[in-house]
Write a protein that binds this DNA or RNA. Structure first.
Lengths: 244, 244
DNA sequence: GGATGGCATTTTGCATTTATTTTTGGCTGG
DNA sequence: CCAGCCAAAAATAAATGCAAAATGCCATCC
């Protein structure tokens, strides 16, 4: 397994850098958990790569116990898979997995939209409007990174307005898994759908302003389904590093 | 902490019984995980009870390492909460938590219904019909346990028909958390709503037969919201062992 | 008499050690 | 020369041991 030697070395470097910032909370294993999660999301390790715990322990400068605990949690979160007596692998998402993830995200966002319409304040709607127009400006400027950032903030604002912490946590969990996928599929693929997505966001804002729960529910679900279709289309056109 | 001595003793007994049945998969910590989860769901430990790991280790007859790993996973699943340097407690669901759980379940079931309408086969619809009429028979017989069992099977059938394993796993996770709540709130409270629930299930079957995704989506969500209202109403009338 | 500070006990968190399983390399037999 | 098997090495899983943090208790001081 030399193919990931470089990646593990990179991991070591990453840790050296992040050791400065007091990332985690109190306990060591939570700190490790956060670092590992971030590392996996950023896609620095190829899909399906084995995660030799001994090597990682040396990189992190810790013992194997807290690392194993962190891996168990990450497995429960769906970012790694644990093969009995054979260690951990980076979970490789098949096309089916990706389809399913988008569907669940669609259901969660739809729920968030419905609840948000029941609970959102005028001030929060104004804040979303602001984000929306900033995002539109980014769209006109063809500033993709800014667009993505604002896009994320809008969706997060809707989830927050749903007043449901359990939903927010679950949403974050799935968003994290999808990020792992999205980092692989380069963001370029979004350009195909950019105009369409922008129009959908107009509808999202409109439904939110009118506090129409059922409409926002439906729009957000279809919005995610369109994202899904685009992602799968991209994957078919670029089966480069696919690991199905 | 003598208040839970009896409960832990009961735990020990439980394990002795279950040690016979080959519950878990291969690895020891997964076996422990399953046992602990089942034990927590059954509500044998009071809300907020401390879980001293040393005591549990003796009960299970294992070392602390696999137990700690299992506890970390259960914390990620939301069944226990880990206080840094202060061990694990049984997570006590506040009224807000319960409200949130029902909302998320509503979103997930709604999604399942929508997807099921797109994917379900005629044979599967026939199977649901069969379950439905059996459930109706149980309703007429006032056979609550049978009714509950069939009710669960119908909802499970819809989730399975959604053809989304990720959704199914997530659904199970939340269903487990709610079971922990439901075991506390005695099932008697359902009798208030029994007729109403039965009528809702007529609509569910109808929408499924017509494969009307948007309708089933909405019906299932409202179905869960009515369950939520009933559960919270019960909780208000019976604040017995409430641990808010 | 009440409150505060220090000490002892208990409990958790991490590291180290031991054992079991898997894998790989080499060897032997066909 | 290839296939199957055995053995050694490596990796993982579990257990134990050690150190640090927290809680409870007691004594002393105000």
């Amino acid at each position: 397994m030399t193919e990931m030697g470089g990646a593990v070395a990179a991991l070591g470097a990453e840790i050296a850098v992040e050791a400065v910032d007091p990332a985690g909370a109190g306990s060591l294993h939570e700190e490790i958990l956060g670092k590992l999660r971030r590392f996996l999301v950023e896609g620095s390790l190829p899909d399906g790569a084995r995660i030799p715990e001994r090597t990682l322990c040396e990189s992190f400068g810790i013992s194997r116990t807290p690392l194993r605990e962190a891996l168990k949690v990450l497995a429960a979160e769906g970012l790694v898979e644990l093969l009995p007596n054979r260690g951990a692998r980076v979970r490789s998402y098949t096309e089916t997995d990706i389809r399913e993830l988008f569907e669940v995200m669609g259901g969660l966002e739809a729920l968030a939209g419905r609840l948000a319409c029941e609970n959102i304040t005028d001030a929060e709607i104004a804040a979303v409007e602001k984000l929306h127009y900033e995002m539109y400006a980014s769209y006109m400027r063809r500033d993709l990174p800014s667009y993505f950032k604002l896009n994320q903030l809008i969706h997060k604002a809707i989830v927050d307005a749903a007043r449901n912490a359990t939903l927010a946590v679950t949403y974050d969990n799935f968003a994290t898994r999808l990020q792992r996928v999205r980092y692989n599929a380069n963001r370029e693929n979004h350009k195909d759908r950019w105009g369409e997505a922008m129009r959908e966001h107009e509808q999202i804002l409109d439904a939110l302003q009118r506090r129409s729960g059922v409409e926002l529910n439906d729009i957000l679900y279809r919005h995610l389904m369109n994202k899904q279709a685009a992602a799968l289309r991209y994957r078919h056109d670029h089966p480069a590093q696919a690991a199905d």
